[in-house]
């Protein structure tokens, strides 16, 4: 019996302590999750059909909606970027804070196995309902003065589960300059995310900033969401052949969708042929065109009454 008793008692002793803390939960609540920020575009059978094409070529009702396809692509890019960003925060949630100080929680520092020669830590500061956090690195051989922030964020809590207003900033160019492997983010200067979900519709805005001489020094996605599966994505498509003519166009697309009755997309030509012109296209639940009309034409195709009601997003 002694042979089993003592290991059992030692096991119980080592199992003392824990992470049971309400305060820790409030800190963790300030960190965004991909579920809260991701774009949620309903799938459809048309999503695998075709891709970007010139929108002026003999479009007819029932064709795959090119605006819907563009929206899908933008949604995927949006979510992919969020994944990369939030993965950095996911790991923090899996471990309890290393130190708990008044108004501060710190995870680490630890040597970063993915960034040899660097230490990493995550620091969260709290003042009432306002939380600021940063993911910091420093060369392992340097002192505490050498910590610099790769990611900075803040959140103003408004009660509820991750309800509030927040922002994140990823300083990619600093990281590259300091020898951090940024993976797929290389080519960007900075990635900024702002979001709020304390009021409807919830909003997530993502700005990709690239260094010159990039054709698109700033690329902005704005995603809004209403309860029940209604969503809106506003994004810029550069150098696309949107209308007949000798120039390629830069267009701003605003897509709004319903959970099960398709959506409505509009684009405005910012540069290129027919600058200032706009186009409106509606798609059904299968992602196929139900109505389309160009601003420079008198009549469109299909019936405008077939477009779903997405007026909930009107400002």
């Amino acid at each position: 019996m002694r042979r089993t008793l003592w290991p059992a008692l030692l096991g119980l002793l080592t199992a003392c302590g824990g992470n049971f803390s309400n305060e820790d939960l409030e800190y963790l609540n300030a960190l965004p999750t991909r579920e809260a920020l991701a774009s949620k575009l309903p799938d459809s059978s048309a999503s695998s059909v075709g891709g970007l094409r010139q929108r002026a070529d003999q479009l007819s009702v029932g064709d795959p909606s090119s605006l819907y396809l563009d929206t899908r692509k933008a949604s995927a890019e949006f979510n992919s970027a969020l994944d990369g960003l939030l993965t950095l925060l996911e790991n923090i949630r899996t471990v309890p804070p290393t130190t708990r100080e008044p108004g501060r929680r710190t995870w680490g520092p630890w040597p970063d196995r993915n960034q040899p020669g660097h230490d990493v830590r995550f620091v969260m500061d709290r003042q009432g309902a306002f939380f600021a956090y940063s993911l910091q690195f420093k060369p392992s051989k340097d002192g505490d003065d050498a910590w610099w922030s790769f990611l900075e964020g803040s959140f103003k809590a408004d009660a509820g589960i991750r309800k509030g207003e927040g922002e994140l900033h990823l300083f990619v160019d600093d990281a590259v300059a300091k020898g951090i492997n940024v993976g797929g983010l290389r080519g960007l200067t900075q990635l900024d995310v702002g979001y709020q979900n304390k009021a409807l519709p919830s909003r997530v805005e993502m700005i990709f900033t690239a260094p010159p001489p990039s054709a698109t020094p700033e690329l902005r996605y704005t995603y809004r969401e209403l309860p029940g599966g209604f969503g809106e994505m506003r994004f810029l498509v550069k150098s696309t052949d949107a209308v007949p003519g000798g120039l390629l166009e830069d267009v701003e697309i605003t897509s709004r969708w319903t959970p099960d009755r398709g959506g409505v997309g509009t684009f405005v030509i910012l540069e290129g042929d027919l600058k200032g012109a706009s186009y409106r296209e509606c798609w059904n639940a299968e992602g196929r065109v139900s109505f389309a009309k160009k601003s420079w034409e008198l009549f469109g195709i299909g019936l405008a009454s077939d477009c779903p009601d997405v007026s909930g997003f009107e400002e």
């Binding site: 119980l12 002793l13 199992a15 003392c16 302590g17 824990g18 992470n19 049971f20 803390s21 820790d24 939960l25 963790l28 609540n29 949630r93 899996t94 589960i161």
Partner: peptide, 22 residues
Amino acid sequence: TYLYMGRKFDGGAFPDQYYATF
């Protein structure tokens, strides 16, 4: 007594927490 107290959040909204002590 060896007392173990834990909580598990619905849908994994937050990590499981526990506290154990004699």
